[in-house]
Nucleic acid binder design. Sequence first.
RNA 1: GUGGAUGUAGCUCAGCUGGUAGAGCAUCCGGUUGUGGUCCGGAAUGUCGCGGGUUCGAGCCCCGUCAUUCACCCCA
Length: 413
Amino acid sequence: MAINFQAPKGVSEYVPPRSAIFEMVREQLCAPAKSAGYQYMELPVFEDTALFARGVGESTDIVTKEMYTFEDRGGRSITLRPEGTAGVMRAVIEHGLDRGQLPVKVLYSGAYFRAERPQKGRYRQFYQVGIEAIGLNDPLIDAEVIWLADQAFKNIGLKNYRLEITSLGDAESRAAHRKDLLKFYETLNLDEATASRAKLNPLRLFDDKRPEMIEAMSKAPVLLDYLNEESKVHFEKVRAYLDALGVKYEINPKLVRGFDYYTGTTFEFIHMGLGAQSAIGGGGRYDKLMSELGGQDLSGIGWGLGVDRTILAAEEEGVIPADLGNADLFIIPLGTQLEAIKIAAELRSAGKVVEIAFGERGLKGAMKGADKSGAKYVVVLGETEVASGSVELKTMSSGDTKSVRISDLVNAL
RNA sequence: GUGGAUGUAGCUCAGCUGGUAGAGCAUCCGGUUGUGGUCCGGAAUGUCGCGGGUUCGAGCCCCGUCAUUCACCCCA
């Protein structure tokens, strides 16, 4: 009896030909950060459950209902990472990276896990690229970090997105705002579910999508108006730097993010062509996270960009090159298999992508194979070509051919 | 976790008020000699998601179940 195995519910998988897009997008998302000196880090996909409970925040939905948590054979509580920052902070502290020159600038990419009900752009295993700059609370870093994300999206060719930023201020600013916000809620007569959400994180209600709540919240006191002098100056500098860098943004004083650790500068990239799950990236500054996790009292800032959603966005905008992952050359040997594979080996070590026709198909079938492969050029290699040392290099798109010395193929491609 | 939609060949789908399964694309072979994309001919391919029920008879009706998908919640 055959059993039909299926991938677990809600995971995103990338198989050819779409996997070529995945590789390209992930690489492009990392590229700007690499060029700014962020160094790569590879971390475990699971951590001590308490790390996330403490790092992400006990009150968040992520911790209360979306984590893949299990007990390992030693009786330890383990959780599949639902986000990247907490694990990075743990590793930075554990390896003493914050004992050297500051800021520590790291880059990472990988799979993350949340046990949510899947829908478009939301998966139970999804991919993110992230960076963190830890150790200095300099507005110039904030601006650079945001610029790096913006560059990443631009490199891929995205246009139809916007950047929203705000400042959540420092602890003093937030405390002042919170007091007034809670007072405001008392006047609202909230239903039970909403009230308990407000209790966990008062800012959450700014994110409510119900029209009556949006209406009610339009009169709520906004955190941005409660920034103390220091926070205000910091945010103004960030904005001035962004303006100077030509990064376009909108200030959204009601921007709310899902993690409790954010303070100060906070931002989100939203793509307009996606469905309900429209955030393609986001991040912010965190003042207390590191000390909370047992490290020094250092501020940091970082972001996570969603690879899956960026792919959806890029596909929606039609900016994916059609020939992604296709070969440069397709060689069809006719009784010259040995010579063909030697030529292929040489071209490959020179960095060319070369395929060979395998099997006993006739020339016609092999040509079809070459066509389907999407290779840019094709050559037929028979006894005469081997003897003469030159081949007819055919450009598949146009059908044109030209005679090329085999030894000169590298340059011709 | 809640709600809606959908599950028929590898893919996209059709299948009339229940009568024993079809198209297009893709795949493979051919249209005679060493050149693909178009065209023509041919071939292969399905426990109609799974389990139960109603019926002489179910892809079509009923119940259950699983999965996919979109939205809510939340987030990348």
